[in-house]
Nucleic acid binder design. Structure first.
Lengths: 110, 110
DNA sequence: TAGCTATATAGCCAATTAGTTATATTCTAT
DNA sequence: ATAGAATATAACTAATTGGCTATATAGCTA
């Protein structure tokens, strides 16, 4: 699991890659579409996509001639879960609120 | 802000540095204390601490002969806020729940 | 089959990183 | 003032990274 965190955090440490994720939050996109906003070569974008895919942040599809990418949320949740362990340090009401929510959420999901 | 995210994510991509943060979650610690669990040289630890400090994840104190480090939660919150934008992708009930919580939390804080 | 489009891979280079050992700095205590 | 303890900095090295250009691969279309 430590390895997975390494890879995910590392993938997220690049602004180009985060921008690609943000784009994919609007739905799947081809490599060409993802490359368009940047002044980088196509191979550079392909490399970034490979890094994102190896981190499990995106997946590749197959559609006619192109290989559209889609967001893979699980890896992002891994990060969210990791950072949530520190939430009490910035959110003083965390403990009270967290207890409360676990009950509330149970009801909500019925 | 993009720069800050780069630096924070990059700092978090190393398991030694995450372990140091986990240790600091239990309270302040000296460099020697932080170095103790690892088979790394003291300068290596000092380097990791510098990376964490430049990312704003920790701060250095001053106490007699030593320079104890403490956790700095704001940088972690920055990450939590960033990843929260993607929460709807893994948590289907996010929208409903989020609306609900904003009311609940308001009451809680009274 | 030939050519076009979309994407991936290879090979190269410069910058960055994570580690090392050796040394410097800064307090504390004698 | 001197010695020791805690930590930082310097100088070096090997590995990794992010970019490039050139080229290969795969599918579509004529």
């Amino acid at each position: 699991m430590d390895d997975r965190l390494d890879t995910i955090f590392s993938a997220l440490s690049d602004p180009t890659r985060r921008a690609i994720l943000a784009r994919l939050a609007n739905g799947k996109a081809t490599v060409a579409e993802l490359a368009d906003p940047f002044e980088l070569s196509q191979p550079a974008i392909s490399k970034h996509l490979k890094v994102l895919e190896q981190a499990g942040l995106i997946r590749s599809g197959r559609e006619a001639n192109s290989r559209p990418r889609i967001l893979e949320p699980a890896a992002l949740k891994t990060i969210a879960d990791w950072v949530a362990d520190y939430r009490r340090f910035w959110d003083e009401s965390f403990d009270r609120l967290d207890d409360y929510l676990s009950k509330v959420q149970g009801n909500e999901n019925d």
